[in-house]
Amino acid sequence: MTESLKLTVDKRDGVAVVYTDGYINNQGGEEIAKVAYDLLDEGYRALLLNLAGTKIVNSIGISILIEIIEKMIEVEGKLAFCNLTPTIDKTFHIMGLAQYTSIFEDETEAVTHLTG
């Protein structure tokens, strides 16, 4: 069995960075959503998902990420992703996610965008 997804949150001035480590499936997606919605409740309106520790995702997990994107649009917040593997990046483009969220190669670039 695969290990469950581990999440680490770094709360900074104006942006919260969520680091994922492991498989983003339905369970992993739900865990990310819970953390994201808790951060929104705390007042954060700029979230960065750093997927450097994630090599596998599935469409159920990504569907939950779409729910987060929808929520961020609703609250007029900003959501970005960084450090995607080429395949996850390609998958996000196939699905059209790149039109509704921002994707960056590295964290520095993403944080600059979110706090700028």
Binding site: S59, I60, I62, S63, I64, I66, E67, I69, E70, I73, T87, K90, T91, I94, M95, G96, L97, Q99, Y100
Partner: peptide, 21 residues
């Protein structure tokens, strides 16, 4: 994606992903 963002059910991507990859 533009429809899924507003829809209750956000799933149903499997074949599109397979065909894209």
């Amino acid at each position: 994606i533009e429809e899924k963002l507003k829809a209750q059910r956000k799933r149903g991507w499997g074949l599109k992903i397979i065909e894209g990859l």
